[in-house]
Simulated scan of single mutants.
Amino acid sequence: MSKDGQGSPRWFDDDAGPVVRPYAMTRGRTTSEGRPDLDLIALVHAERDAADLEGEETLSPEHLDIVERCRQEPQSLAELATDLDLPAGVVRVLVGDLLAAELIRVTRPVPPAELVDESILRDVINGLRAL
Rank of each mutant, 00 (worst) to 15 (best):
M25A: 11
D83G: 02
L43Y: 06
H45K: 09
R122H: 14
T58F: 02
P61R: 06
R105T: 13
L59Q: 03
I104K: 00
V116D: 07
L40M: 10
L103C: 01
L98A: 06
A42S: 14
A46W: 02
P111Q: 07
D37S: 12
D65F: 03
E56H: 09
M1D: 04
R129T: 12
I120P: 02
D13C: 15
R10E: 14
T30L: 13
I125K: 14
E102N: 11
H45E: 10
E33Y: 10
G5E: 08
Y23M: 13
D97Y: 00
G55D: 13
R69H: 07
P36N: 07
D14F: 13
L84S: 03
P74C: 05
R69W: 04
P9K: 09
L128G: 08
A130L: 13
L80H: 05
G89P: 02
P61K: 05
D14C: 08
I104M: 01
R48S: 08
D13W: 11
P61C: 01
R29I: 04
L77E: 03
I104F: 00
D13A: 12
A113K: 07
P18D: 15
T107M: 04
A101V: 00
E118H: 13
A101M: 10
P18K: 12
L77M: 06
L38V: 08
L80K: 04
L80E: 03
H63M: 01
L64Q: 00
E79V: 04
L121S: 11
P22C: 08
S76W: 02
N126L: 15
D97W: 01
G7Q: 06
R10F: 03
G55S: 11
V20P: 07
A130E: 15
G89K: 01
D117G: 06
V93G: 03
R129E: 15
D4Y: 01
D39N: 12
D97L: 01
T58A: 09
Q6D: 11
D123S: 15
G96T: 04
I66M: 01
G7T: 06
L99C: 02
Q6A: 08
S119Q: 14
P74M: 05
A78E: 15
R108L: 12
P111G: 06
I125C: 08
G5A: 09
R35K: 13
R35Q: 11
R10D: 04
P36K: 13
